[in-house]
Each structure stands twice: as structure tokens, then as C-alpha cells.
């Protein structure tokens, strides 16, 4: 069984799926990513599916699961590079890819993650201002 490599770029993990995955390869990727998120403390995951000529229900579920796992590990997932024919087919198949954020390419995916981290940081600052006592205890 082949494995999909996970690359770390700054605060982001980049996964570019370049092979026609067996189901076991997809399940392995879920585990590998969870491990890498915890090991690196990265806050963003970008999954590049430019090279995938189909996304069936199994791979669709894998993407949803990765997004859910990342979320509970404090990381944001963005799926990028979906081909038009794949998008048309996914919709007809009935897959909604719930909970998955998408962007057209890796660059926009990185911008999306950076923007959502800024929002989270702002929110944290607001909390500190609103309740100085709690901020003091948390430091």
C-alpha cells in the first residue's frame, strides 16, 4: 500500500494527493494527518485534490472525517483544486461535503486559513479585555 506524504509549510500541513488511492491508503492518511497535527501543532491543513480525476463517496467521507478530526485538534481544513467535472459529479452523486471549506487553489487556501486564524486571535484578545481576571489566571 502506498502512502500519501504530508508536508509541513510554516503553520500549515499540505497534503497533495497524487495517486489513485486504495481505500486503505485513504484511511491511513486520516491517521497520519491526526498524528502530524498533534506533533507539529499546526493550525491549518490544506488538501490539494488537483490530481484526483474522481472523488467517490469513500474519498468524500475521508475528506469530511479529516475536517472533523482537524477541528477537534484545533486546526482548520481547506480542500483545494477540485476539478469542474469532479464538482459536477459530486453534486449528482449526492455528496454535500458537509463541514468542508474549499478554495480554488493552494494560495487561496492558505489565505483562508490565515484569515480564520486572525479572527480566532481577535476573539481571544476580546475575551482577555472583557475578563481581566480570567486572562490573568490563564497566563
Amino acid at each position: 500500500m502506498e502512502r500519501v506524504p504530508v508536508l509541513k509549510i510554516g503553520d500549515i500541513l499540505l497534503v497533495s494527493i497524487q495517486l489513485d488511492m486504495e481505500d486503505q491508503t485513504a484511511l491511513q492518511l486520516q491517521e497520519d494527518l491526526a498524528d502530524r497535527i498533534v506533533a507539529t501543532g499546526c493550525h491549518g491543513v490544506i488538501i490539494d485534490i488537483t490530481a484526483l480525476d474522481i472523488v467517490d463517496s469513500f474519498v468524500g467521507r475521508m475528506l469530511s472525517t479529516i475536517a472533523a478530526i482537524s477541528k477537534v485538534l484545533d486546526a482548520e481544513t481547506v480542500v483545494v483544486g477540485m476539478r469542474p467535472a469532479v464538482a459536477i459529479t459530486l453534486v449528482e452523486l449526492g455528496l454535500s461535503l458537509n463541514g468542508i471549506r474549499t478554495a480554488l487553489n493552494v494560495e487561496r487556501g492558505m489565505e483562508l486559513i490565515a484569515a480564520s486564524r486572525e479572527e480566532t486571535d481577535d476573539w481571544a484578545v476580546d475575551l482577555d479585555e472583557a475578563d481581566p481576571g480570567q486572562a490573568a489566571t490563564s497566563t
Binding site: 467517490d56 469513500f58 469542474p84 467535472a85 469532479v86 459529479t89
Partner: peptide
């Protein structure tokens, strides 16, 4: 291309 994609996707589901 779209029909190829649809057919291959259907085949993937049915083969599984």
C-alpha cells in the same frame, strides 16, 4: 470528460 468522470465514479461505488 464529465460523462467519463460520472461513469468512473459510479464504477468505483459499484466495485466497492
Amino acid at each position: 470528460l464529465v460523462d467519463q468522470t460520472k461513469l468512473v465514479t459510479a464504477a468505483s461505488e459499484l466495485a466497492r
